[in-house]
């Protein structure tokens, strides 16, 4: 229950502690100095509108990804092969919800309300990571998501712990600590399957074959085509380019795949002694663009599920609001 100006939630929030000021007339005095000194910008500091917009877009998109990301894994909670694995998977999916909430909170400090962000997602105006539009047909896909998708996420997110916007950086510190559990649980699932029956080994290999290229594309388009990268790097939001992070990820994967006893589906993957890195093959950026456009295998299903969950939860949100109002009224009576 909002007590003042409910029609303007952002403005209302802006008056409270550690919340953004949304008045557009503010100068950006001091901003460049803080960025140049590699300092941190905090919610009530002056900042260029474009910096605020970029962060709202990036953080809310990141939050939406965590929330939508619960679906491919949630698919296997009821069918996890043991009670222990089910409990672990539930904890992991709960973490993803938590990560989404940390990030929505961070975005809210910039003066955008939770409702605005949710509405943008439900209306299809906001994006989430296209990786979650791929299906999880087998239990091994849960392992592949943990190892490859969460592994790529960690590569992306560790540098974000030093992002120039304080609340985002702090959320990322918390998230990164929890992600390493996710990556290890995925690795463990694949390792168990890889050393199981020939059928299980085959299932693990096929899941890795499915997720390898999409996980490499999670870092975004090649540097030459990445439109927002240069400005984000100048603002210390982004610390490394898409291709640098992708390379780091590939270099990390090769020895890990060896430990798993699984191969990576890339005939061009080879150590390049001159560069001191692994070379890897061309990625199918047409596929990436198609999935972004909404043509992935699960885009429609993911959004339909998210909208249904939101609609079916409406009565809970309303009941909690009504209950809180009733209790507050009762307290008011007894105090009078």
């Amino acid at each position: 229950m909002t007590q003042t100006t409910p029609q303007q939630p952002s403005r209302d929030r802006a008056t409270s502690a550690d919340r953004a000021r949304t008045a557009p007339t503010r100068t950006t005095d001091g901003f460049d100095e803080v960025i140049a000194a590699d300092g941190r910008i905090e919610p009530r500091d002056a900042m260029p509108e474009a910096y605020r917009r970029t962060l709202v877009r990036q953080i809310s998109q990141h939050a939406h990804s965590e929330i939508i990301g619960m679906q491919p894994e949630g698919n296997w909670i009821t069918r996890a092969p043991s009670l222990a694995r089910k409990a672990i998977l539930m904890a992991k999916v709960q973490d993803e919800a938590g990560h989404g909430l940390y990030l929505y909170s961070a975005a809210e400090t910039l003066g955008t309300s939770r409702d605005e962000m949710t509405a943008a997602l439900l209306a299809g105006k906001a994006r989430y990571s296209s990786i979650f539009n791929y299906p999880t047909p087998t239990w091994a896909d849960i392992g592949a998501i943990g190892w490859l998708v969460d592994g790529a996420a960690i590569c992306n997110q560790v540098p974000l712990c030093r992002c120039s916007y304080g609340p985002y950086a702090r959320a990322m510190v918390r998230i990164c600590k929890e992600e390493s559990f996710h990556q290890r649980q995925g690795f463990e699932i694949l390792l168990t399957l890889s050393h199981g029956t020939p059928e299980q080994h085959e299932m693990a290999q096929r899941a890795v074959d499915r997720w390898y290229a999409p996980s490499l594309m999670m870092f975004g388009p090649p540097d030459a085509e990445s439109t927002n990268s240069a400005q984000s790097m100048a603002w210390n939001i982004k610390r490394f380019s898409n291709d640098e992070l992708r390379q780091r990820f590939v270099d990390m994967l090769v020895p890990q795949a060896k430990a798993l006893g699984l191969s990576l589906p890339d005939p061009d993957l080879a150590w390049n002694p001159e560069r001191g890195h692994y070379d890897y093959g061309e990625l199918d950026w047409d596929e990436f663009a198609a999935v972004l456009r909404g043509e992935g295998q699960c885009n429609v299903q993911r959004m339909a599920h998210r909208r249904a969950a939101h609609d079916e939860g409406a009565w809970v949100r309303q009941a909690a609001t009504a209950h809180a109002a009733k209790r507050a009224a009762r307290r008011g009576e007894s105090a009078a």
């Binding site: 229950m1 909002t2 007590q3 502690a17 939770r114 949100r317 009941a319 609001t321």
Partner: peptide
């Protein structure tokens, strides 16, 4: 009928 409003924010 309860109007749907955003729950308040807590620190």
């Amino acid at each position: 009928e309860v109007p749907e409003r955003e729950w308040p924010l807590w620190e």
